[in-house]
C-alpha cells in the first residue's frame, strides 16, 4: 500500500502525517483524487480550479518532483514514496 506523506500545513487538514491510500492508485493524479475525496479541504491547497497542481506545491515521487516527471500522470509503483509539500521556503544566516 502506498502511503502519502503530508507536510507542514497539510498535516492539520488531514489530521495526520501520513495517509495510507486504500484504492491502490496507479498514478499521482489518482492518489491526489483519493486524498481529496477523503479530505476535501486539501483541494484548495493542492489543486487549481483547472485541476492542475498549484504553483509552488511540490509533489514528489521517490524524491523527484512530478513537474520533472509526467505530472499527474506520473505512475506510482507499489513501493513508491509519495511526499506532498505546500509552498515552503527558508534559508537562514
Amino acid at each position: 500500500m502506498i502511503e502519502a506523506k503530508l507536510y507542514a500545513t497539510l498535516r492539520a487538514i488531514a489530521g495526520s502525517k501520513t495517509v495510507t491510500l486504500e484504492r491502490q492508485p496507479d498514478t499521482v493524479g489518482a492518489a491526489l483524487e483519493e486524498l481529496i475525496d477523503r479530505f476535501p479541504d486539501l483541494r484548495a491547497g493542492l489543486l487549481s480550479e483547472e485541476g492542475t497542481v498549484r504553483p509552488f506545491v511540490a509533489v514528489m515521487v521517490d524524491g523527484r518532483d512530478i513537474r520533472h516527471l509526467d505530472g499527474l500522470d506520473t505512475p506510482l509503483e507499489g513501493d513508491a514514496t509519495l511526499d506532498i509539500f505546500p509552498p515552503v521556503a527558508g534559508g537562514s544566516r
Binding site: A8, A58, M60, G63, F85, V88, A89
Partner: peptide
C-alpha cells in the same frame, strides 16, 4: 520548514 522537502529530494 525546509528540512523535510530538501531531505525528500
Amino acid at each position: 520548514v525546509l528540512m523535510n522537502p530538501v531531505n525528500a529530494l
